[in-house]
Design a protein around this nucleic acid. Structure first.
Length: 427
DNA sequence: TCTGGGGTCCTAGGACCC
DNA sequence: TCTGGGGTCCTAGGACCC
């Protein structure tokens, strides 16, 4: 049936968050720049220059602030509205040029290049189109499986003489063997630090060791996921392209606080805000949930403080997507787990037991869906979509600033908020 | 003083049923 | 009082990803 061997590309933006920042603030171009996590806690993205300075991924800012000052490194809070919008633009460039695209993460997409007459050339073309239309530089890895495309992408980034595109399917067997031998096993997609350690205990140190391991043995000593990885490394496709993202099976919302709090009202406000965000996501995929999980905890890094963490799951009588219903359940949960006398640092919720609206089993206890509630929620969602998040909200999410997240260094929402469009002054 | 958030999949083990 | 094995469902926890 299929006359062509499968071929995948992984297109991945270089230093995505840092690049987004510098596109709209040219003063940052060519400079050392780091982007922070929510709450300005950790360094989650770095420009090439910041990487060259040796600033590690995930480092706590407070340990590196002096170093940043010393090296003249710019520091930015994260601006997800901006990154999300740039991500959509990049995706649409790819979709304009390829029929089958899977958006894998905010800065990565898999493409199906099966049947392309010159896939490597196609890779260069995609790269230049993305750059022309978005100013984003990306790397392109091409291979007969997703795992190999991912590996090829890493090579494209690490070995600049390929010009940002590397097609492993084009390489002679011996060359691939040498390449596999040159990289440690954790360079493979799906092998993290823990697995690396246990693999090493079995004598599997390099990518080549893993690629030549017996998949059955891997399955017994590890699991089926890693077995698939081995097969993919030889070029046997086990993972397919997923063009449509499946509905979420769980929806989480949680945040650390800007400052710790002992006040239950702050916790309630934070929880209410999280429920409201999560419920919006739930309705956006036309789903309802059965359970509301609530958690809170103190700051585990403050070892001298008394520590407390607890969570609970509150089942709903009937699956719902009504913010008010979910909120009520969350408050029941919060009351159950709250204990006074602790300095709380984080609160969160998770919606689970998710199903599509309309597929619930009809039984004695099932009520018919509350249409009034559906209409109200969809009106609120539409208004918020149009006028900005939080324009309309349930009263209890109305908040003071105590628990709010810190974002002192955020750039403007250049592309998603009319009031923050970049201004160009011509003299 | 200051240390992110949101997801998936798999496995082991317990409860329960026949 | 003695006693089996298999299947399913659920949950907690671990590993991974970005």
């Amino acid at each position: 049936m299929d006359e062509h061997k499968r071929l995948y590309a992984l297109v991945d933006a270089n230093n995505f968050y840092a690049t987004c920042e510098s596109i709209f603030d040219p003063r940052l171009q060519g400079k050392s720049l780091v982007v922070l996590s929510n709450n300005d806690g950790c360094i989650v993205a770095r420009s090439a220059e910041a990487k060259a300075h040796g600033i590690p991924m995930g480092a706590p800012l407070h340990e590196w602030r002096d170093f940043c000052d010393f090296t003249g490194t710019e520091i930015k809070s994260s601006n997800y509205a901006l990154y999300g919008d740039m991500s959509r633009r990049m995706l649409s460039v790819l979709q304009d040029n390829c029929e089958r695209v899977e958006s894998y993460s905010i800065d990565e997409s898999f493409l199906d290049l099966t049947g392309q007459s010159d896939p490597t050339q196609m890779g260069y073309f995609l790269r230049s189109e993305v750059r022309r239309r978005t100013k984003i530089t990306c790397g392109v890895g091409i291979g007969p499986t997703k795992t190999l495309a991912k590996f090829a992408n890493m090579i494209a980034k690490k070995q600049p003489w390929y010009g940002g595109v590397f097609n492993i399917a084009d390489q002679p067997h011996d060359f691939i063997t040498n390449l596999f031998e040159a990289y440690p096993v954790n360079e493979v997609w799906g092998v993290g630090n823990r697995l690396k350690k246990s693999l090493e205990a079995h004598g599997i140190k390099t990518v080549l060791d893993l690629a030549t391991a017996d998949p059955k043995l891997i399955r017994t000593h590890f699991n089926v996921v890693l077995e698939k990885t081995v097969r993919e490394l030889w070029g046997e496709p086990c993972l397919s392209l997923e063009e449509v993202a499946p509905d979420k099976q769980q929806i989480m919302a949680s945040r650390s606080f800007g400052q710790t709090t002992t006040n239950p009202k702050d916790l309630a406000a934070a929880i209410a805000n999280h429920v409201s965000r999560a419920a919006e996501k739930l309705r956006a995929q036309n789903s309802q949930c059965q359970y509301v999980y609530v958690m809170l905890r103190t700051n585990p890094f403050r070892e001298k403080d008394p520590q407390y963490r607890r969570s609970t799951i509150v089942p709903l009588a009937v699956p719902s997507s009504d913010t008010r219903v979910l909120l009520k359940a969350a408050m029941v949960g919060l009351k159950e787990i709250f204990k006074s006398g602790y300095r709380y640092h984080k609160a969160g919720i998770m919606l689970s037991g998710i199903s599509q609206v309309g597929v619930q089993q009809a039984d004695l206890f099932t009520e018919i869906r509350d249409e009034k509630s559906d209409r109200l929620m969809s009106t609120i969602d539409q208004i918020n979509q149009r006028f900005g998040r939080g324009t309309l909200h349930v009263a209890s999410t109305d908040l003071t600033s105590q628990w709010k997240m810190r974002q002192d260094l955020r750039s403007p929402s250049y592309t998603t908020n009319w009031k923050e469009l970049p201004v160009v002054i011509a003299n």
